[in-house]
Design a protein around this nucleic acid. Sequence first.
DNA 1: CTTTTTGCAAACATTTTGCAACTGG
DNA 2: CCAGTTGCAAAATGTTTGCAAAAAG
Lengths: 155, 155
Amino acid sequence: MNCTGLSQNAILDRLKESGCRITAPRKALVASLAESHTPQSVIELHAAANKRIGTPTDPEPVNLVTAYRFVNLLETQGLARRIDFAQGYARYEPTHPDDAHHHHHIVCDQCGKVEPFDDCDVDELSARIEARSGFVVMRHQLELYGKCADCSREP
Amino acid sequence: MNCTGLSQNAILDRLKESGCRITAPRKALVASLAESHTPQSVIELHAAANKRIGTPTDPEPVNLVTAYRFVNLLETQGLARRIDFAQGYARYEPTHPDDAHHHHHIVCDQCGKVEPFDDCDVDELSARIEARSGFVVMRHQLELYGKCADCSREP
DNA sequence: CTTTTTGCAAACATTTTGCAACTGG
DNA sequence: CCAGTTGCAAAATGTTTGCAAAAAG
């Protein structure tokens, strides 16, 4: 289970409340999303879901298209957050139950390791930019890139 | 001409110094990049370059593939910077002559307007994360999203 | 039984690659 | 002349869409 975001059941409950149907593919995708400790690509979620409920007879009960449609649903419902690490594809993580508690990530360029952090200073910067530019800042994306401890040891 | 990044001639000179050849497509692409005041997509650069040197007889003297190859060259040479606004494609801007002087952008979700800002607080945050996580932070991406002054007036 | 969801195929958008022809220096 | 550059066609990647069949409630 992921340590910061909505739990599997919380997501399923909120889906049901919204009148969405709970299906086997959705359960498997939600489970894969909720148990992950780092943001997952749609391809990773799709693979994890099929590993979870696939059988020798039917190794791929969840279609990739279904995964794409479902993450979009989760995002529009506010249950998952799309994150872009500039890798050419999007990643998703469960939203935090407390809406205000947002966090960011540091990504290792070498091994891809991702670690979250939640001490984010951007609010005062936002306020300054708002005052100066007339923009209303609604959200921000901040990602740090570098080398993780392991990768900094070797060249 | 863009007000913060390398000038057209500076880019061409540095290319020549590196042993790269200066061709008509490259001149047109560099001109398009250098004159832009906001980060440009490759498709935009390609269109601008062809508008610049295209003729009725040959409306597209610069191939899109050439544009892609060239922005990659500029990036590896440190002459352009790739920026990802999570729009499904990359944008490029000329790098700043002073390497340390980096900046970020605020993007209007509604009309796509982009404005740069250069008062960035992330350094102390980076230092804190480095100390705590063991990561060596090498760069960061920060983008603010919201509504520009014009778009906030109307719904 | 009705509406939502799924799977499949196919379309789409961006970016990359292989290769022969071309061209700048 | 010749290495570097280009254009074309084609492929690779990630994502979306149309539609009929399947399934949830």
